[in-house]
Write a protein that binds this DNA or RNA. Structure first.
Length: 495
RNA sequence: GGUGCGUUGGAUGAGCGGUUUAGUCUCUGGUCUGCAAAACCAGCUAGGGCGGUUCGACUCCGCCACGCACCUCCA
């Protein structure tokens, strides 16, 4: 924990040295998915970005409580005025219970996360399980005079709030701006005093299935409440890190700040972190643009923009090869490049075992091994520069290749250090693992044996210079989709 | 209109005030191989325009041009 981790704080627009509120402990909250559809590539980004942070903080010795919510209620379709709960709408369309939908997509989300080797958070609270906490939050804001009741709904009074505090500090916009923008796009003010006011509690229309009793009306919480209420419940009135996608800065996180301030009199979050978007042909990938590719489609290769299926680890590597605050433009070509890069990294890890040690290391090898981990820490500590981490690990692979080819010498001690560093950084911190290592079914074992037999036969034919037979085996295996690669240590195969 | 970001070699995409600046794809040469594939090694005229700071800038600052994202549910 002697490492100084710099984190870019959206609130101050500066990189700041990270210091946790409670020494040795970190509380971290990240906005999770709204479970009314399959997760797409865009959802993978915050999940992976904050997974890296979660892993790295733990690596540095912190005990981390990581909370990522499941939004299963509360996101209104259009605007708080005439909105319809997204979950409820889809439920009616498909004649299912809202909870059935939420459960179904939650499972699918978690399964996709597992494939991407995203560690499960410490707590995954559901919005529907915290209605009482959200009502308490609303009541506090009402009691403090920063909200008003209108026709059974409760709205946050931005004008009033702005007199005592300042609304817009996170997104860097003034109340005047916000009002102007709202006036253009929306017609009547309706129940609200001010167009910029946002709903804390919404009275349910008769057609709403998801509803809860409250002092104000039968209804449901406004969509900014859950994160404020649940973050506070599990991480305390003040906690270290709040993360999410950049598109949540306004209004979601801006409203969270206002809610915390209005209810508790102080802000809850020390460091606001936001990952940038993934674009496709230069445009943000999103549900409303209808240009998204779900993670499932990636894994299966079922999308017109995909030339083939991509392994979850390829997607993870692809996302990590860009810095989290920059946009990443998706293309099949870019993913194919990522696939090769990832394979190269894994090969380097594997080839460590083939290195023959010498009595002593060459000076440049000692220098490289000695400096590697320090450089990795420097990169990671500078606001999680994973592209640099990866490029350093590629340099390590280059060293491994030289050593395998016996173009350099390495001592047993240096090799052990190199192995340990590479393993720790690739597997534990970046969370990249070899996907194929998990296949241990009876079928796979049987295939392994058969292949070993076939390759032995081919090796024998080669020994006897019976090229016709050896080539025939190679060609027929190729026709069956199995590629044979000859290496100095014998043939290897893959499907 | 407001708020941010970007402009790097044949393509993509990182880092860095000066020395050898990643990686991937394509191409070229080589090693290995019975041949091939794979793998590995090496190479392939780079940093939008104009100013400024500096002994020195692709890297810092300013202006301009172009492009992009966010400002509505959204990761």
């Amino acid at each position: 924990m002697e490492q100084t981790l710099l984190i870019y704080n959206t609130l101050t627009r500066k990189k700041e040295a990270f210091k946790s509120i409670n020494p040795g402990h970190v509380g971290m909250y990240v906005c999770g998915p709204t479970v009314y559809g399959d997760a797409h590539l865009g959802h993978a980004r915050p999940a992976i970005t904050f997974d890296i942070l979660f892993r790295y903080l733990q690596h540095l010795g912190y005990k981390v409580r990581y909370v990522r919510n499941i939004t299963d209620v509360g996101h209104l379709e259009h605007d708080a005025d005439e909105g319809e709960d997204k979950i409820a709408k889809k439920a009616r369309l498909e004649q299912l219970e809202p909870m059935e939908i939420a459960q179904y997509y939650t499972r699918r989300f978690n399964s996709a996360m597992e494939k991407l080797n995203v560690l499960p958070p410490s707590i995954e609270p559901h919005a529907t399980g915290h209605i009482i906490e959200q009502q308490q939050l609303v009541q506090e804001i009402l009691d403090n005079g920063y909200a008003y009741i209108s026709n059974g709904s409760v709205y946050f009074d931005i004008e009033k709030y702005n007199q005592d505090y300042k609304y817009g500090i996170l997104s860097g916009r003034s109340l005047e701006n916000i009002k102007d923008a709202s006036r253009d796009t929306l017609a009547g003010i309706g129940e609200k005093k001010n167009q910029a006011d946002f709903a804390l509690w919404k009275k349910a229309q008769p057609e709403h299935i998801m509803r809860w009793p409250s002092p104000w009306s039968d209804g449901f919480p406004g969509w900014h409440c859950e994160c404020t209420a649940m973050g506070r419940k599990y991480l305390g009135e003040e906690f270290d890190i709040h993360g999410g996608g950049m598109d949540l800065v306004f209004p979601h996180h801006e409203c969270e700040i206002a809610q915390a301030q209005a209810s508790m009199g102080h802000q809850a979050v020390r460091y606001w972190m936001h990952n940038n978007m993934i674009t496709i042909n230069g445009q943000k990938m999103g549900k409303s643009y209808n240009n998204f590719i779900t993670l499932d489609q990636f894994f299966k290769g079922e999308h017109e923009l995909l030339t083939k299926a991509f392994a979850p680890m390829t997607i993870r590597f692809f996302i990590l090869s860009a810095h989290y605050r920059g946009t990443v433009d998706f293309s099949s070509e870019a993913l194919e490049a990522a696939e090769k890069g990832f394979a190269r990294l894994m090969q380097g890890l594997k080839d460590l075992k083939r290195i023959q040690t010498a009595k002593g290391s060459a000076p440049e090898v000692t220098k490289f091994v000695g400096e590697l981990e320090g450089k990795l820490y420097d990169a990671m500590n500078d606001d999680l520069q994973t592209p640099v981490v990866i490029s350093l690990l590629f340099e390590a692979c280059h060293q491994v290749n030289l050593l395998v080819d016996r173009k350099a010498k390495i001592s047993a001690a240096d090799l052990e250090t190199l192995s340990k560093v590479m393993r720790t950084w690739i597997e534990d911190i970046l969370g990249l693992t070899n996907a194929s290592s998990g296949s241990n079914s009876e079928k796979d074992k049987a295939l392994d044996k058969v292949m070993q037999m076939v390759l032995d036969m081919r090796a024998k034919a080669k020994e006897e210079k019976d090229w016709a037979t050896s080539d025939k085996i190679r060609d027929e295996l190729a026709a069956a989709g199995i590629i044979v690669k000859d290496t100095p240590d014998g043939a290897v195969w893959e499907v």
